[in-house]
Amino acid sequence: MQQMTAITPARSTWRDGLRQEFFPRDRRRDIDGLRALAVAAVVLMHAQWLRGGFVGVDIFVVISGYFMGRSALMQDPFQPARFVCRRLYRLLPALLCMVAVISAGMLWWVLQSDRADIALNGAYALVYLSNIWAAGHVGYFEGQALAYPFLHTWSLSLEMQFYGVIFLIAVMLPRVRWRMYAICAICVLSLGLSVHDHVMGDGQGYYRIADRMWQFCIGAMVWMLPRPRLSRMVANMAYALALGVLVGACVFYVRDYACPSWLMVFPCLAVVAIILLPHTDVARFTLGPVSPLGVISYSVYLWHWPVIVLANYLLMFQVAGLTMAGVLVVAMLAGLMSYVFVERVFLDYEGRVNVAVRNRGALALVCACGLLSAGLGYVSYISRVH
């Protein structure tokens, strides 16, 4: 009789775990690489090492529009509860953790005038209205921005407001083609408004959702475009050109070119071109290797600015040079810990629990943000009174 030998599954090693976590097979590495480029540009701009790093926000916006086009506009039928819960579990836990930790560690020792503004900014951030607060309080490129550790959350507020628009379109327009017509109309109107505000010199359009909706929309409109059938050489050349446009914009653009300037059309179209060309040699050798940074880009973005602001407060001088390099290392570690112990944990939880538990958890996250926002609003009020 032939002897049967048991086949035991190969043990997963820590290397396999890291590979699955930071090089996941169910994600496009080139888009994660785009996220890495975007967050690196923003961080380096805030470190005063890259003048055009604001382009990173525009890259994030187009990518967000692309994924929302798939998860909402192209879904028939649309699943509202699933869409909302996924967004809440994706964004709220890490934001809530960051605002709570920075508030607890900072508000008790800063000056009352600073405390009032910082607490109010945190309160607005937790209800995703930080861009509205910022438009009425501080210019993004002005020196006093260093006083506000939550100022960078204005872009997260824009993103959540866009989700609200997408949600309404998906619910009110049952047919996919109607949704796309609506997105095209919004894109044209928003681009027109952006150009108008640029001509009129309205710099606060940088914060407004109306001036940036066209960027979200062209990302969503990628799903309307036919996939290009190019030869391998032509695809690589087009990809390299688009990547060169993005890097060039990050290096050479000045603050006058920031949204609502029409010049932001070029890097946004470059992102669209890269998304439309997913399998190229250029992508594999350029954006692919940096994709792990893109995987944790949300948490890195959340933590890098508060760490920079806190360092300036504690050291009592504007951080630069090697000191700034050390601060950025701390910010990267904070972002990595946020991803591993907060962001990833809640996303895994959302994916494995049943619908009722998932919905209750989403409601609990919203309530927690509301309570902390109310508490920070009260701190701000008390600080102003006294």
Rank of each mutant, 00 (worst) to 15 (best):
R115F: 07
L293C: 12
V55P: 04
Q79N: 13
Y66Q: 09
D30R: 09
C187M: 13
L287I: 01
V366K: 06
P80V: 10
G326P: 05
Q318Y: 10
G248R: 03
Y206R: 05
L276H: 07
L95K: 00
G122K: 01
R344F: 06
E21P: 00
Y140C: 02
W109K: 02
L146T: 02
G375A: 12
A36H: 11
N312D: 15
V290F: 11
V247H: 06
L372E: 00
F285Q: 12
V355E: 14
S231Q: 11
I7M: 13
A238E: 08
V251C: 11
Y140M: 04
V345E: 09
A273L: 13
M316K: 15
Y140Q: 00
N354F: 06
E142M: 01
R115E: 07
G326F: 07
A364P: 07
V345L: 08
H137T: 11
Q144A: 09
M200D: 10
W305T: 00
I218G: 02
N121G: 14
V127F: 12
V295Y: 10
V330S: 06
W223I: 02
L95A: 05
L315W: 10
M45P: 11
G105I: 04
A10Q: 13
A185Q: 07
V245I: 14
A240Q: 02
Q204L: 07
A325V: 13
Y140V: 03
L18V: 15
L371P: 08
V319L: 07
S71P: 03
